[in-house]
Design a protein around this nucleic acid. Structure first.
Lengths: 191, 191
DNA sequence: CTCCAAACTTAACACCGTTAAGTTTATCAT
DNA sequence: ATGATAAACTTAACGGTGTTAAGTTTGGAG
C-alpha cells in the first residue's frame, strides 16, 4: 500500500465520485462519510476542500452545468450558418437530449436550489448559465431576423419555457422515455 | 394540561404541520422528531400512522395535489362555456398561478420523486393526476373542435410542456417573480 | 534545514430515522 | 358492567449522519 497522507487531487475526486453516487442511488442516499470512504480518506477530509455538504453539492452542480454548457456550445457551433434560427432549434434539442440522457440531473440542478440546502450564505447555484448562453445566442439571431425588442423579449421567455418544460417532463420517471420528444420540440419551437 | 394519551387526529395534523414546516424551512430541514415535537407527541408516534418518513412525504404530496386539482376543477367550471378552448387557457393559468403562489411546492411535487426517497416500495406519487384531469378536458375540447387524433396527441403534450415549463421557471428562486407570466402563457398557448 | 500552512486523521457532539418492548386507551362482545 | 383485543402512544436504544476541535503529517518556500 502506497497509502500517502496527502491524496493529491481529492477535491476533484470527491466531485466525480459524489456525482457517480448520485447517479447510482439518488441524492438522498449521498452521505459525506460514505463518499469519503469511497475515496479512501477519513470522514472529515472533505472539510479541507468544502465548507460543508451544501458546498460540495454546489460544486457537483457546477460540474454538471459545465457539461451541459459544452453541449449547447457544440450544438451552436455545429450549425452551419450560426446566425440562423436553426441554431436555436439545435441548442434546444441538445438541452432536451441532455436531460433525457441523464434524467437525475434535472431535479438535482433545478430542484435542489429551492430545497434550501445550506448554500444559504454566498453564491447561488449557476444552473441557469447554460440558458443564459442560449438566450444570448437567441437574442442575436432574432435581432438579426429583424424582430422587435418586445417580440424578442417574450419570444425568448416562451422558448425557454417550452424547452425547459419538455426537459422537465421528459426527465420524469413514469413518463414514457421512448416518446419522440424531438418531434415535439420541432413542432413546438417552429410554430 | 388535559394532555391525553390519544391525540385524536394526529395523522392529519402531522401532514398539515409537516407541510407548514416545508414552507418555512424547506424539505431538507424537515425531521420527524421536530415534527412530532411540534405536534406534542413522542418521537416514535408518527410510526403509528406512517410506515416511514417517505410515506409521510407522499401523504403531504397527495395533500398538495388535491389542492391543485381543486383549482383546476374550479378553473374549468368557472369557464362559461366549458367546452371551449378558453377553458384550457384558464386551467393553464390556474396551474401556473398555483406554483407562483407556492413556489416550494413545485420541486417538492415533481423533483422529490426522482430523488428516490424511500417511496421505493409500492405506490408512486400522484403528482401527475391534476394534469391527467387537464389532459382529459383538453382532449374533449379539441375533439369538439374537430382536430385529428394525431394533432390532438401532440397538441396536448406540447401544451403540457408549455404550461409545466412556465410553472417550473416561475417557481424558481432568482427568477423575477414579478414577471407577467400570464401574458407569456396567453401568447404561448394561443399561438 | 527550518518553519509554516495546507491536507489530512482521530475523536467527539448533537441530531436523525427507525425499531423493539412496554403502557395507555377506546371499542366491543358477552 | 366487565374483560379481552387491537390501536395509539411512550420510552429507550441502535446505527448512521453532518460537523467541529484538536492533533498529526507533509510539501514546499525561505
Amino acid at each position: 500500500m502506497d497509502k500517502k497522507y496527502h491524496h493529491g487531487d481529492l477535491k476533484i475526486q470527491l466531485i466525480k465520485t459524489g456525482l457517480h453516487m448520485i447517479q447510482e442511488d439518488g441524492i438522498n442516499k449521498l452521505s459525506l462519510r460514505k463518499l469519503a470512504q469511497l475515496c479512501n480518506v477519513s470522514e472529515a477530509a472533505p472539510y479541507s476542500h468544502f465548507k460543508n455538504k451544501g458546498e460540495l453539492l454546489i460544486a457537483i452542480q457546477e460540474y454538471i452545468t459545465e457539461q451541459l454548457q459544452k453541449r449547447l456550445e457544440d450544438a451552436y457551433e455545429r450549425t452551419e450558418h450560426g446566425n440562423s434560427p436553426i441554431a436555436i432549434l439545435n441548442m434546444g434539442k441538445a438541452y432536451v437530449q441532455f436531460f433525457i440522457r441523464y434524467p437525475e440531473y434535472y431535479s438535482f440542478l433545478f430542484a435542489q436550489p429551492y430545497l434550501k440546502i445550506d448554500l444559504s450564505m454566498g453564491n447561488e447555484p449557476n444552473a441557469f448559465e447554460p440558458f443564459q448562453y442560449y438566450k444570448e445566442k437567441a437574442y442575436t439571431i432574432y435581432k438579426n431576423e429583424g424582430f422587435s425588442e418586445e417580440r424578442i423579449k417574450y419570444g425568448i421567455i416562451a422558448m425557454w419555457a417550452k424547452v425547459h418544460g419538455i426537459a422537465a417532463i421528459a426527465s420524469m420517471q413514469d413518463v414514457n422515455r421512448d416518446f419522440e420528444w424531438e418531434d415535439v420540440l420541432d413542432k413546438i419551437l417552429v410554430e
